[in-house]
Amino acid sequence: MDRQLFHTELEIANIVTRLHSVLMTIPDIGSTNDGMILGEIGEIHCFSAPGKLLAFAGLDPFVYQSGNFQAKKTCMSKQGSCMLRYALMNAAHNAVKNNTTFKAFYDAKRAEGR
């Protein structure tokens, strides 16, 4: 089983390398994560706005409101592709964990209450 997994990961790395993906320029995004993101998005030009890609991933904010009530916090809708959402969250987590520039940006946003 380990041999089959190794060959599958090697094939993914070869395909991603041939695609010359710009995602591979981001530190700590491996070929498996890159392959998952590219595979789920497909042709990126099909999304006319960044917000549409965000919604497709299910990372868009979901606002709770009813009548005069409006929630103070929002959460992500999680209505899109769970595989794309997983790959993006995993990539972001790895970047924050292993890269000081991304960690500083993340910490600054957390300090703002985001």
Results as ranks from 00 to 15, higher is better:
D60H: 07
A57D: 09
M1L: 09
M89S: 13
A108Q: 15
T74F: 01
G67P: 02
Y64K: 14
A91S: 13
T8A: 09
P27E: 12
A108F: 14
G67H: 05
D107Q: 15
T32F: 01
C82A: 12
N98C: 14
P61M: 07
K78P: 03
P50I: 13
N94D: 03
N90K: 13
S81I: 08
L84Y: 04
P27T: 10
M1Q: 09
A108S: 15
R114C: 12
R114Y: 11
E11I: 08
A95C: 15
R110F: 03
Q4H: 07
M83N: 06
M89R: 07
A87L: 01
G67D: 06
I37C: 02
Y106C: 13
Q65L: 04
I41N: 04
G113Y: 10
R110D: 03
L10R: 07
D28V: 02
H20A: 11
Q65N: 08
G51W: 03
R18M: 08
P50H: 11
L5D: 01
R3V: 00
D28H: 14
H93E: 02
R3W: 00
L59P: 11
S21P: 14
L54K: 07
R85I: 04
Q65T: 06
I29C: 09
T100Y: 04
F6Q: 09
I26T: 08
